[in-house]
């Protein structure tokens, strides 16, 4: 047998699917400017501004009561700030509305899960597709052609998410019967069903054991890498935050006291003071 020419090992760039259009961090996609939020006489956030760049993972950290969750709620319109403006994809708002945030591509998960406990994993994630359903309730009930085709399309998206989050074994299981860590994953899955551009995660790893945290980190990074989704997350575990974030915003008593890369934040005097007490 004649010897065959050995073809050089092709670079993965050429043979594989082309690299994603987003080559990591892009321009500013979301910015909050001079946000102040009061509840009666209590000031939760005062004069906080920061930018979120496309495709980055931004962590918001701070001690309890620093205003982190309030900040997420302002961004997706659950709370309306008394002062300041939010700019998202070249449109400026004094106050966001939740449905508009969802329609524009901002999804979120909750600190205390808000899932339908009696419904299956599949159905819970399917509810995340609600915004994208076009056919009417009657057409869906009668399963007429267009409604059925639409359902199949949505189901395919949902199946990709189930595959992505590795929860195939629980597809038909009622969410209430799942372990806490898995419920968190379903919550993430429902947010992903919206195919968001920006994903707000409120303590995605709270109450998890080490292994579950590792899994969650991997899912978050995979979402960011594979779909290019911009991620804003609140997290208390500093190890996790330093590991997976591109940038960190630090809040304390409603004020921003730090903003930068993990390395910069780690060396920031004000941040150390806030976490360890001023007289450490």
């Amino acid at each position: 047998m004649a010897s065959l020419p050995v073809q050089a090992l092709p670079a993965s760039k050429r043979l594989d699917e082309p690299p994603p259009a987003h080559t990591r961090i892009g321009p500013v996609i979301l910015s909050v400017a001079n946000i102040s939020l009061d509840f009666g006489g209590v000031r939760a956030i005062s004069d906080v501004s920061f930018d979120v760049r496309e495709h980055e993972v931004l962590a918001i950290i701070g001690p309890n009561g620093a205003g982190k969750s309030s900040m997420l709620n302002v961004i997706n319109g659950v709370y309306h700030a008394q002062q300041g403006r939010i700019r998202f994809k070249d449109r400026e708002f004094a106050a966001m509305q939740p449905h508009r945030a969802a329609a524009m591509g901002i999804a979120r998960t909750f600190q205390n899960l808000a899932l339908f406990k009696g419904m299956s994993v599949l159905d819970n994630i399917m509810t995340g597709r609600n915004m994208k359903m076009r056919t009417g309730i009657l057409a869906q009930a009668l399963r007429v052609g267009p409604a059925e085709r639409e359902e199949m399309r949505h189901r395919e998206v949902v199946e990709h998410i189930i595959d992505f989050l590795e929860i195939q074994a629980y597809r038909k299981t009622p969410v209430g019967r799942l372990a806490y860590g898995l419920q968190k994953r379903v919550d993430l899955g429902r947010a992903l069903a919206l195919e968001p551009e920006v994903l707000l995660l409120d303590e995605p790893m709270a109450g998890m054991n080490v292994e579950e945290k590792q899994d969650m980190c991997r899912f978050i990074l995979d979402v960011n890498e594979q779909y290019g989704t911009t991620i804003v997350l609140i997290e208390h575990d500093m190890g996790v935050v330093m590991d997976i974030s591109d940038r960190i915003v630090v809040l304390d008593y409603g004020r921003k006291i730090g903003d930068g890369t993990p390395g910069e934040v780690r060396g920031n005097r004000a941040v150390i003071d806030a976490y360890l007490g001023a007289t450490h």
């Binding site: 993965s12 043979l15 594989d16 690299p19 994603p20 890498e225 594979q226």
Partner: peptide, 15 residues
């Protein structure tokens, strides 16, 4: 291919 986007020098079975 999941998670392997930024790996160098690998080839998918498709390719």
């Amino acid at each position: 291919p999941r998670g392997l986007r930024n790996y160098e020098g690998l080839v998918s079975i498709d390719a």
